[in-house]
């Protein structure tokens, strides 16, 4: 579900500028599946799909697969359109050291939203 974050870094050059000093590793969980995502200077450099035995990460975002699918719609419904909206509905959990996330909040929102289907995304 999140494997494609590794792709199209060049298309996200504007986004990378927003996180040019960010180096971190975070986990996205759909409860059943886990993805370990590495970021260097704002670029996604690796996405590893679990299961993991001893994963090491800075922070973790957990929501059910169904909630992530709703978030990833091209035009998500109210309450599924934003990670803080999901937090408000208590369907998403933030855990760990949240400093990289909160200090680059817009970057992470746009990074995850870049997985939504758009005309340009569909072309490739």
């Amino acid at each position: 579900m999140f494997k494609s974050l590794i792709e199209k870094n060049e298309r996200r050059s504007q986004l990378s500028i927003m996180a040019q000093y960010l180096n971190t590793c975070f986990m996205i969980s759909t409860v059943d599946d886990e993805y370990l995502i590495s970021i260097e200077k704002g670029n996604v450099t690796n996405v590893e799909e679990g299961p993991f035995v001893m994963p090491s990460y800075i922070f973790k975002l957990t929501a059910s697969k169904n909630e992530w699918l709703k978030f990833l719609q091209s035009t998500p419904q109210p309450g599924s359109h934003d990670i803080i909206a999901m937090l408000r509905r208590k369907v998403l959990k933030f855990e760990g050291d949240l400093h990289p996330l909160m200090s680059h909040l817009l970057y992470f929102k746009l990074l995850l939203a870049s997985l939504r289907p758009t005309e340009s995304n569909n072309e490739n």
Partner: peptide, 8 residues
């Protein structure tokens, strides 16, 4: 961070 909150 305030911009990030407002955006969503």
């Amino acid at each position: 961070v305030c911009g990030g909150i407002a955006y969503g």
